[in-house]
């Protein structure tokens, strides 16, 4: 029953979702909207699992004074500290808002900003002309980058249009090809799960 029951639930809900999408009656009953609401509700409960896991892992790190344990301490203090503040004055209270807007958001933005530097270092490695593919990649990248920057148009009139054509036609066509293949993959995966052929999500990697 450990595997059969989840498989049965998966199949029933999989078929129900298909019914809710394709058939008029399914849309009338609002099956998709109802299940969306269930997901939102269960998300609330799932947060507790995350808190428990973080507490167990980092609590053990602190307790056993494992390497880098002060980081774990910072995490526990930050997590429970913010939770306490938010419970005391709600998440929209002044301190909670200040912590979120003044600390969390800028840290997130700083992480995002790192991409620029990492793209540069990756580009340096990739564009070193070692193979034929790398050469093609570099030529295409130079054409596109200069075409998208104002300097390209200054150097050669019409460069921007060439770069834009490259993005809109060959790149777009390749991306759409990948997307079509991926969507078929989605369908095949969904079918394998609904039919109970793929059971990796129940543990291990064994098929039926």
């Amino acid at each position: 029953m450990r595997k059969e029951l989840p498989l049965l639930i998966t199949t029933v809900f999989g078929l129900l979702m298909v019914f809710g999408r394709w058939f008029w009656l399914g849309q009338l009953w609002g099956i998709e909207s109802i299940t969306d609401q269930w997901i939102i509700i269960s998300n609330g409960f799932a947060v507790a699992i995350g808190v428990v896991n973080l507490t167990q892992l980092h609590g053990r790190n602190v307790q056993r004074r494992r390497e880098h344990w002060p980081y774990s301490l910072v995490l526990i203090v930050a997590m429970y500290g913010y939770m306490a503040i938010a419970l005391y004055e709600t998440v929209e209270g002044p301190t909670a808002t200040w912590l979120y807007d003044g600390l969390f958001t800028p840290i997130g933005s700083a992480m995002f900003a790192l991409i620029a530097f990492y793209i540069t270092s990756a580009a340096y490695r990739v564009f070193r002309v070692r193979t034929r593919e790398a050469t093609v990649l570099m030529i295409c990248a130079v054409i596109t980058m200069l075409g998208m920057a104002p300097i390209g148009e200054v150097l050669i009139s019409g460069w921007h249009s060439v770069a834009e054509w490259g993005m809109d036609v060959p790149v777009s066509a390749a991306f759409r090809g990948i997307t079509i293949g991926a969507r078929l993959g989605f369908m095949a995966t969904a079918m394998r799960i609904i039919l109970g052929l793929e059971r990796a999500h129940l543990g291990g990697y064994g098929a039926s």
């Binding site: 090809g177 293949g181 993959g185 990796a200 990697y205 098929a207």
Partner: peptide, 19 residues
Amino acid sequence: LIGEEMFAASAYISKEPVL
């Protein structure tokens, strides 16, 4: 692994004819 290749993983790894 590009696009649909990633969805072939379970069949590829398990070598199950059904998958």
